[in-house]
Design a protein around this nucleic acid. Structure first.
Lengths: 228, 228
DNA sequence: TTCCTATTACTCGGCGACGAGTATACGGAT
DNA sequence: ATCCGTATACTCGTCGCCGAGTAATAGGAA
């Protein structure tokens, strides 16, 4: 009977490895190359350090098996792995979960925003504007790269959108963030957001706020979806 | 000269700890309570395991110092920490960077999307629709919670938007994702996205795509493993 | 020919993340 | 008076992450 050892194995790199091996048996370094070629390393964190750790862990869990070891000259040995039936099942189960179930994540920007009120409003505005600029150029760059990969070249055939769809997702999220950041910066700049003061009292910092946030009764919320 | 020991210290929990100590000296457990009270644990990952590790690391770096140790009865000792001048500087520098410089991140959904083409289009649609539903209810829930925290209660005063602004960011991002996912599902459903086929050839899997839209060919490999 | 850099392919050691465990105290219920 | 769940407050050990290190080969330039 199959022992139910889900283990940790939460690293998405493991998913990418399984995906490679569904295609054909490979050695770890070739998996990395394959991911790079297809730009999957943009959506799955890939480090050589982790690669071998994760492969080992997959082997321990019986999701992949070493198939052969080769050696060319006096180069280091290459172990070629193949996926098992359990590995295939794991892959599809995991993939379905990743797509259908949102998971809570902790983007660094949210952490920064959490404490933005500690800065002066003027500084907050200029930092947000800098972010907006950087986002803009990153978006332009990412879009160009995406178009190029999709169009193909001599070596690579053009690819259907769906096999690179994660790029469209990431682009859209960045665009959305850009719009939001720009809006926030201008709201702060023109005083639409009340800024609390922090005062020392009895040796600790207190937040002081007069309780009025929005100016004239414009509807307070920029929560609604504006884009599209 | 001051040795440049930036160390690792990349865990945003460290930022949150410094933020607490800017307010007043505290012991670690109280920092955790404070973060929870203000819902900062929604934007900064907080585990007791990590908390003490990070505090220790901050102390080693000279960003905080133990100020006193108390003991009530025979309870475990509590070490109260205070922020140093270096810690304050680190906090503001880090905060500015977090806000002004976008960093590459790897959301799990992007990893899932990377391999969605391996599934059948019909299944992809239903998984995406499930995600959309879950996002919808998560958004509703998060919005209610946010409004409640902002409005205050007997114990807590109402708060200005800017001190909880990370909630608006996260809401907007979720809404954006929802719109995108919904759109993708319907595009797939009505055939707007060509779906490649995967065929076995010489013992490995090849992607076949006619470059325009799909037409029903013959021997497609069935990759899918039924849900367990 | 010889040099130099890039590529191939993995190994290793340290450090950080984190769940589970420990132990005390408090307060309401019975 | 006693019970029991919850809150307080930290400790420990494991395991995963990851950058830096190693070492051999191929290919182009001088």
């Amino acid at each position: 009977m199959a022992t139910k050892r889900t283990r940790s194995l939460s690293n998405p790199l493991a998913l990418a490895i399984l995906a490679c091996l569904i295609e054909r048996p490979m050695h770890p370094y070739e998996m990395a190359q394959t991911m790079r070629e297809r730009h999957k390393h943009e959506s799955v964190r890939l480090n050589y350090g982790s690669l071998y750790t994760v492969v080992e862990s997959l082997e321990r869990s019986g999701l992949i098996v070493p198939q052969a070891t080769e050696r060319e000259g006096r180069r280091p040995e290459r172990t070629i792995y193949a996926i098992t039936e359990a590995g295939r099942a794991k892959f599809f189960g995991w993939l379905r979960t990743l797509i259908s179930k949102p998971v809570k994540e902790y983007p660094q920007f949210a952490a920064g925003l959490s404490y933005i009120a500690i800065l002066e409003p003027a500084e907050a505005v200029s930092l947000l504007e800098e972010r907006a600029q950087q986002l803009e150029s990153q978006i332009a760059e990412a879009r160009l790269l995406y178009e190029a990969v999709r169009a193909g070249s001599q070596d690579r055939p053009p690819l259907p959108r769906i096999v690179l769809i994660e790029n469209e997702y990431e682009l859209r999220m960045k665009e959305c963030e850009l719009a939001w950041v720009t809006r926030l910066a201008s709201d702060i700049a023109n005083g639409a957001l009340a800024w609390p003061r922090f005062v020392m009292r009895d040796g600790h910092l207190d937040l002081v706020w007069d309780g009025e946030d929005r100016k004239e009764g414009s509807e307070e919320t920029n929560l609604t979806v504006a884009t599209e």
